[in-house]
Nucleic acid binder design. Structure first.
Lengths: 226, 226
DNA sequence: CCTATTTTCAACTTCTCTGTTGAATAGTTG
DNA sequence: CAACTATTCAACAGAGAAGTTGAAAATAGG
């Protein structure tokens, strides 16, 4: 026998712990969250996560060692992407657990959201109905590149940074639903606030594309801007 | 505004990382795995995980701080249990990812299993059919207390340690299917080997009760021994 | 071939985690 | 109430991780 029971168990739990360690750092979790939105270069990830490129590279390398991400060279850039849908599932499982168990998360979220506006998130089924009936318009306020990777079916791309330029093209008579990366992302909150200041009726959708996809709802890969 | 975007994000990812850290240690993962089988006392967990009681207590305390487990006093013992079904889901998500991504896990498992016998695990649907038709008999070879907490519907309790005493009661003409805690638990492997040595036709079921339950298949809470 | 750019590596400091040991705490039971 | 026992706490040494800095490797394009 090459391994005793105990040695075997230790080896297995060590392997599982490799995955645990990989998601034991806030920085790496943020990277995984960003990568759930689509592939990215090291530099882009570093910028968005507010970390040095060197540190981002190191953390990505760690995620790679745990087989959570894969790399591909594109010209002078290296593009990282999730190793599979299941990695996103892991992130969502963690998030769900956090929401259920860690009242602190809820408190932080509430603190933050209350400090802005009270923006009731919209209901999914209701949203689909309204869009179908032409009562509502869905805006994807993430950066254009993320929209191009994937977006909720029927949504228009209106990056938060360029939202002001889109205002004149938006219908005044429809409700506008803004979404971004997910419940902890604040871009849609800012977008809704801006839209309301401009007189639009706007609400926030808490889901991001990964949530949407995980529920089996329609997602488009790359859509034309009308 | 009480928090900036960045502070808010940091706080959220910190909370998620708390969960990640909790499952970043092999020892704690083993504890979670054991607790997936049912509530346990500190001493019992320490014995099974091969750790000192003090260290086990400390790690359980850590899991408790991450809201993954709950405690209850029973007589002079403290009983720990998972804080919810979702914790088990997290463990299973990790395990699934490990199986998919970490070829090392597969290699270790194969090494180990080959070093024993080649025990082809049985197919779930096929198993249900055979049990229903009376062609097969399902044995739960985990310790009696785990069986009493929950077991696969229709299974008999035959703890590995007492399996020898049960041999005379087992039918020679039926196939015997043994299961234990899950794919990484080796009790069912030992059981199958023993049964085969004694002339029974025995196979191993890879699933444990948590997997079985998670698939929505029937689980009984406490069953009488025939 | 050489340069500019992106990414990775290596060394280092600071901080945190792990498991052990021995003592303290908190309940239960006689 | 006192003795007993399971559990937890506190302090410690060793190991390992996080992020910084500066330099090296790899690639595209002139």
């Amino acid at each position: 026998m090459t391994l005793s029971n105990r040695q075997y168990k230790d080896a297995i739990y060590d392997q599982l712990a490799r995955l645990g360690k990989a998601v034991a750092s806030p920085t790496r979790l943020e990277l995984v969250d960003l990568l759930c939105q689509g592939p990215r270069t090291v530099e882009s990830l570093a910028r968005q996560a507010g970390q040095s490129v060197a540190n981002t590279s190191k953390n990505l390398r760690l995620l790679h060692a745990a087989r959570l991400v894969e790399t591909a060279r594109q010209g002078t850039y290296v593009t990282y992407r999730l190793a599979g849908e299941e990695v996103c599932d892991l992130f969502r499982t963690l998030r769900k657990l956090a929401e259920l168990r860690l009242t602190e998360v809820e408190a932080i979220t509430r603190d933050f959201l209350e400090s802005r506006d009270t923006l009731e998130p919209v209901d999914r089924e209701e949203l689909i109905r309204r869009v179908h009936d032409g009562e509502a318009l869905v805006l994807d306020v993430r950066p254009r590149e993320e929209y191009e990777t994937a977006h909720i079916a029927g949504a228009l791309s209106a990056p938060l940074s360029e939202l002001k330029d889109f205002l004149s093209e938006l219908p005044q008579d429809k409700q506008i639903v803004a979404y971004c990366r997910g419940p902890y992302c604040v871009m849609s909150i800012d977008a809704v606030r801006l839209l309301r200041e401009e007189g639009f009726e706007a609400v926030r959708l808490e889901d991001g594309v990964p949530d949407w996809r995980a529920r089996g709802l329609a997602v488009e890969a790359a859509g034309a801007q009308p």
